[in-house]
């Protein structure tokens, strides 16, 4: 498979094994983007591993937003082991997306990538 060399693969037995701690640590270590490639929904060998991974990805996206890191840098994809060309396509898509965003602010120390979300004048 010919996918961009900048993509570093970490194999896990099931996407359900991917914990929020792994995801945030990847960003702490300065990764520009992270994606979890899980099996197609409904096709998890452990029944709900990929669904749990999806929830954790969503949770960490929220945390990244709070920290001022563009949540687009973290994504979840679902594909089967037989979808080699889709795998390459995803790797390219992520690479392009990250190129357009530029390096992670964790590496540059340049502050938030976008302004703090405006609190909608909610009455407390």
């Amino acid at each position: 498979m010919d996918y961009p060399p900048n993509v570093k693969l970490i194999r896990v037995p099931c996407s359900g094994r991917v914990d929020s701690v792994h995801l945030i640590k990847a960003f702490e270590e300065g990764m520009d983007g992270v994606y979890v490639a899980g099996c197609l929904e409904g096709e998890c060998h452990f029944l709900t591993g990929n669904l749990r991974a999806k929830k954790r990805v969503e949770y960490v996206k929220g945390v990244l937003t709070t920290l001022g890191i563009n949540p687009e840098r973290l994504r979840m994809y679902n594909l089967s082991a037989a979808m080699g060309s889709r795998f390459v396509e995803i790797a390219r898509e992520m690479t392009e997306m990250i190129r357009s965003l530029g390096p992670s602010p964790v590496k540059t120390g340049a502050g938030r990538e976008f302004p703090q979300e405006q609190e909608e004048g909610e009455e407390q």
């Binding site: 701690v21 945030i24 960003f27 920290l67 001022g68 602010p105 964790v106 120390g109």
Partner: peptide, 20 residues
């Protein structure tokens, strides 16, 4: 323990974005 790891990492990540 897990929440300690996560929070510590999140704090360090936030600080790194500020260059501190």
């Amino acid at each position: 323990e897990k929440e300690v790891q996560f929070l510590a990492s999140a704090i360090r990540t936030a600080r790194k974005t500020q260059g501190r």
